[in-house]
Design a protein around this nucleic acid. Structure first.
Lengths: 213, 213, 213, 213
DNA sequence: CATGAATGAGCGTTCATTCAT
DNA sequence: GATGAATGAACGCTCATTCAT
């Protein structure tokens, strides 16, 4: 019925094509958003025909999920590599923050897909994200607990909440940073570090705030 | 021949119709997301025919922008009302936070539209949001500056960054709260207040953290 | 996003449009078969845009089902009208057959859709057909039973089987007739009538055949 | 660099491969219908790569035609073998019917492909079928003519029409039987035999029916 | 010889938008 | 003024078919 295929085509192993496709998808999803991204554009950018995308990575939803999965793994790896176990806790946190903001700064598209797109789609997408977020929180929590224990404090819920707030603040700052790209990443990181570490120090030392009314 | 049965139509003043439509739109946008919301469903929920929507509020994009605009104004008003000028700065911040989390808790749909939907659509939508955000940040900044000045500190960029981080953390916590609705709003607010106020206190007193390498 | 509608369009009441669409669909389905029929061609033939089809009659499957339903009802009505209650049984059967072959001859497309397409799709489509078929069989069976009872015979399963075979033979003959259109319908009907009526007469009188080995 | 692992492939003679492919095709076509059958599934079921199918049996249409051709030949052979020349005419017909219903019962897939699928695709497919059908009709006709001649009757068109009706009724009954598999095949065959043979007997003896108006 | 890799072409479906009444 | 009726345009997805290896 259809007489296909006119021009010669480079045959690449599946693995390579998959990476090409994922790269293109991340780019297009981050630029256009999930819904405005069309499979046609993705296939164009990838330099691959649409059927290949469906053959290798499934439906649009599947493709998006694969993007989220890969980028989330990359981000977590970057952070984990930044945090070096032999350093003192504050330096661990510091390098973790640096690694995070570095990822956001150098791979803006990846971060946009993760934070802006995945979260607003809800359902299975967000879950993958939330799982990664939880891992990040517990990473931070481990650090805080170590310090708190040394100081004799043992309020588990406090450190966990602080860790959650810290991660949240980092995300928000990163998001804000995307719209103010002229601020250097070290400055951003140091501001957050100060807020977190000093506030945490107060907490550890029992300095807390309560409403006066 | 045919005696056309015309169901009598309530003629309402334009203002009322517009509110009906916006209410319906906020509800549908927050439930389905921008793209999955159909003009048909919005017109159904509003009890108004589609051409009316186009006549009163323009295209789908215009309608969405109108939603964002109205809800953002509502949120800012709520916060501004919470902050009472005659109180000391810490209590002003505290009541501002309470007002914010109260808005998020009681008007979930509005918040979802604002934070989850508006952010993931690029362009004009985000801008409206960012404007409101900036107003919130400067509100907080004003407070912080007042305290800092009294203490003799005068690092403008520091208070502004702190304000930005605080607002970001609040948004992020609110977002997290949507998925954990059983946590009481006061607890959320107090955790954030502690982190912010104590960390800020340190900053004011010159206790800052610096990397040791 | 899309700027639609250039040329003036005749506004017709829904009922009329639905008939137009069904007429076109029957024609296209009978010509091309269910799968090779495209919604585009149907909408072209109907002189209506595709979205109208979906708005009025649903998916392709729904549309096909609606065709089957309408044509099956038409056929059954034609047969029922042909069979006049005041006539003797043989003449009732005769006029029923005439009506059937007349329908097949004058509305070839309808019959093709019913017999060739609906049956080969299976599932819900065939069921609608089988239901109609069952009504036809019981119509014939009623006739046969009346005669058999008058003659003192009371073998229910025999009349029913005969009725089923008769209906089946009629269908097959009709189908064969489509490929041999030069044979006059009356001749076809009379051949079948002879086979059925005389064979049935033998059965009633107890003349039956049994294998001799 | 890469030592390509080539799984050794069974080299089979063309004839065997072709049978494998046809077997798979008949199965898939009968299960899914012509259009819903995919070349991918056929090649999977056959255990042969798609290009082999195209090399050996041509396009999807060609493949389907080959299926029809083979199965039609098988059916006709089965019937011809059933009819044994030395028997009296009625027993020949009887055994022909038995052979037919036996084929339908034991090779349901083949029959479904032949009757349900081939018929609903127009054009060349139906023609192959009609040819086989004509051969079956003339087989029956030969029998009837022999009897009629012995009795002194010589109305050629009458026997031919009867033969056609008989074949049609048999097909139709077979089709009905597919949906009612609990009825024993002998009963089906005997009902049809009675109708045909007794009706034919009347015809031969000059007992015919004519409309009374 | 045998196949994994690749694609052109088309189909069913939806939706924002507007005109005739 | 208000709406039922109508559509252009695009999107996700599939499949028969073939070439490079």
């Amino acid at each position: 019925m259809s007489v296909a295929q006119r021009r010669p085509v480079k045959r690449l192993p599946r693995e390579v094509r998959e990476r090409q496709i994922l790269d293109a998808a991340v780019r297009v999803f981050s630029e256009r958003g999930y819904h405005n991204a069309s499979m046609d554009e993705i296939s164009d950018v990838a330099g691959v025909s649409k059927p290949m995308i469906y053959a290798y990575l499934g439906s649009k939803e599947d493709l998006f999920a694969a993007c989220i999965h890969r980028e989330a793994a990359n981000l977590l790896t970057a952070i984990t590599n930044g945090v070096q176990a032999e350093l003192p806790p504050d330096m661990q946190l510091w390098h973790g923050l640096l690694a995070f903001f570095d990822f956001v700064g150098t791979q803006r598209e990846s971060w946009q897909v993760l934070h802006r797109q995945a979260i607003s789609q809800g359902g299975p997408f967000s879950e993958e994200l939330l799982a990664m977020r939880d891992r990040a929180i517990s990473l931070v929590d481990t650090l805080l607990v170590r310090v708190a224990t040394k100081e004799g404090l043992d309020d588990q819920s406090a450190t966990e909440a602080l860790a959650a707030a810290l991660v949240g603040a980092a995300e928000s700052l990163a998001d804000w940073w995307l719209d103010h790209p002229d601020v250097p990443s070290k400055l951003i990181a140091s501001r957050l570090m100060n807020l977190a570490w000093m506030g945490f120090g107060d907490l550890v030392r029992g300095n807390t705030w309560h409403p006066s009314d």
